[in-house]
Design a protein around this nucleic acid. Structure first.
Length: 581
RNA sequence: GCACCCAUAGCUCAGCUGGAUAGAGCGCUGCCCUCCGAAGGCAGAGGCCUCAGGUUCGAAUCCUGAUGGGUGCGCCA
């Protein structure tokens, strides 16, 4: 139930009627006609721009169209007033009964209220995290993980068929480095002195992996050449790292549907197949790239390479898919991977990358566009950096100094709910400050707490109602007389609830889950406001002494608010609190 | 040098793909608990939406350019 689409339909019907009566010419494009909440609530409940948008094509003055449209709209019994304002806006006011009807809609729908079929069941693949399997996840990954996960949930809520996917980069040189590092820890576990030189991972998390390897194979690999052990150790180490990463994700509450291995693309002809597809389209050639302008790398020399003609699809330069030794570059398996996603029948692909992959966006879009014949859109969301603070002081991360903050450090300190919510209170393409002290603060300065508090307050009302002997289960609340909710403050809260289904669609269309977080803050604010007005005006308190019928109507409103908050938090992956401590 | 992202109140940020007098939190000045949780609420002060052009009924929003900041730029993924 989305009141805005309902009224939008009313407006379109009225416009159609005007055409039938000759008041408007045929063949007008209504696509830009919107119905939205006016910026200033004093103007009314909803506003439409219909008259202004159509004026030019209809060769009429906006206000003239508006005057006629207003007459039609006023005939609808949901609309109590329709008036022309400013340059040709039409401001509408809706009958209280329309707003009051929301309570039943919310209580009937539960946390499914606001679900949309915007996605119409289209298959969408959301790829996120995809961190290299060389160590536990750190803070940078955390933002991508939270963002991708919330986006996936949002799209699901908006009616898409969502697959959550993790691409394991286990095919490149970095896993050989990992294997060698684990091998050193393995030797160490056998009592040898080892040195970690450049090009190895000195992280302490590998000590245990080395010891486990020793327990598994004994001294079979000790003092053996690399050919003997590299493949097995690599396998063993990547498995161990993926176990670590899976644990990290679990701590955050992230569950993937698919873990897709890069390595599985090799030796199966799938990379060759994808490249062949591009070759058939005339997009693969041998050539030499121009050196980048400006600061030239010291060892630059022109080289002939196998290139993908990504410039045909808007990229700045063509991109190499093979190294000079004939091996694939990282780009080639990535092309094959996306080719595979296209072939699995997804209607839409979304990649969530870190900001450091910004330069990768154009070539990936080019590749998908070429591979799918432009049929499968790919949206690439970049998550900007997370800056950590402690006591207001920037917290520098350094691998060398051991102050590299891991995902588990953050989650252990502040919990998954806070971590998730805070990471979603900024749009993905803006950098994020994360202050350990501030996020744990319990005040309105902290949005997580503020929203949780609103939810907990409603739970508190329900407990108080039980103490006062008022029945307040959802069935009873649903049957209550909601027309008693006629105070302006109560109607305002209902109007905010009415925006929820609309907001879900906007957030889903733009792939911006942070909008959910901001909406929840506003909704919580309205509830807190109503609550406090009960201080001065006792008739606004949810529990009315000696009047259980009125109480039930008011509690139904509180409960509806809590349901929407719970639904929103559900999308963000945050558990709604029944009680705060 | 080139590409992408960002620029809105003193600070941290929203702004519903072009709408009316640009919003919130913090901070600042006041006020509200015999009351369902004051862990809250209300009010006030605070703005040339970085700058300059353009598009149109209408621009913080779209386009061009400039300035400042971030990220990246052929055998690392």
């Amino acid at each position: 139930m989305n009141l805005f689409t309902d009224i939008h339909a009313v407006v379109l019907a009225a416009l159609g009627q005007m055409q039938a009566e000759g008041a408007l010419p045929e063949g007008l494009d209504f696509a830009n006609v919107t119905v939205e909440p006016p910026r200033d609530p004093l103007h009314g409940d909803m506003a439409t721009n219909a008259a202004m948008v159509l004026a030019k094509a209809a060769k009429a003055k906006p206000r003239d169209i508006a005057e006629k449209l207003v007459e039609k709209l006023a005939a609808d019994d949901r609309i109590t007033s329709a008036e022309v304002a400013g340059p040709g806006f039409i401001n509408l006011r809706l009958a209280p009964a329309v707003w009051q009807g929301l309570v039943a809609a919310v209580l009937n729908g539960g946390t499914k209220f606001g679900r949309s079929n915007l996605g119409a069941g289209k298959k969408v693949n959301v790829e996120y995290v995809s961190a290299n399997p060389t160590g536990p996840l750190h803070v940078g990954h955390t933002r991508g993980a939270v963002f991708g996960d919330a986006l996936a949930s949002l799209l699901d809520f908006a009616g898409y068929d969502v697959t959550r996917e993790y691409y394991i980069n286990d095919g490149g040189a970095q896993v050989d480095v990992l294997a060698r590092s684990v091998y050193l820890r393995y030797l160490e576990a056998h009592g040898q002195e080892v040195a970690f030189e450049d090009g190895t991972y000195p992280g302490e998390y590998l000590i245990e992996v080395g010891a486990n390897l020793r327990d598994k194979v004994g001294d079979a690999y000790v003092d053996q050449p690399e050919e003997v052990w590299l493949t097995e150790v690599r396998e063993f180490a990547t498995e161990a790292m993926m176990d670590l990463i899976r644990e990290d994700l679990k701590m955050l509450g992230v569950e993937m549907d698919v873990f897709y291995s890069e390595k599985s693309l090799y030796g199966t002809g799938r990379i060759e197949g994808a490249i062949q597809d591009l070759t058939d389209k005339g997009l693969i050639y041998r050539g030499t790239l121009e050196p980048p302008k400006g600061k030239l790398p010291e060892d630059w020399e022109p080289r002939e390479q196998t290139l993908f003609k990504s410039t045909d699809y808007g990229d700045d330069v063509d991109r190499p898919i093979k190294k000079s030794d004939g091996a694939w570059t990282y780009f080639a398996p990535d092309i094959a991977y996306h080719y595979d996603k296209v072939q699995r029948g997804f209607d839409l692909l979304i990649d969530v990358f870190g900001a450091d992959h910004g330069g990768y966006v154009k070539r990936m879009k080019a590749a998908v566009s070429a591979l799918s014949g432009g049929k499968v859109p790919v949206d690439i969301k970049l998550c900007q950096l997370v800056k950590l603070f402690k006591n207001g002081e920037p917290f520098k991360m350094s691998k060398r100094a051991g102050t590299f903050i891991m995902l588990r450090d953050v989650v252990e300190q502040v919990g998954p709910d806070v971590t998730r919510f805070v990471m979603l209170t900024r749009k993905n393409d803006a950098p994020l400050d994360f202050d350990f002290d501030k996020v744990l603060e319990q005040s309105k300065d902290n949005p997580v707490f503020y929203v949780q508090y609103a939810h907990a307050r409603v739970a508190s009302v329900l407990r108080k109602a039980a103490e006062a002997g008022i029945t307040a289960d959802d069935a009873t609340l649903l049957a209550a007389d909601h027309t008693k909710l006629d105070h302006e403050a109560e109607l305002n809260l209902l109007k905010k609830i009415a925006e929820w289904p609309r907001l879900v669609e906007i957030a889903a269309r733009t792939n911006e889950p942070h909008r959910i977080a901001f909406y929840l803050y506003e909704l919580a604010s309205d509830l807190h406001g109503l609550w406090n007005r009960g201080n001065e005006n006792t008739s606004l308190r949810f529990i009315q002494d000696d009047d259980s019928a009125t109480s039930q109507a008011k509690i139904a409103l509180a409960r509806s608010t809590a349901v929407v908050i719970a639904a929103g938090l559900g999308i963000l992956g945050v558990t709604p609190a029944e009680e705060l401590r």
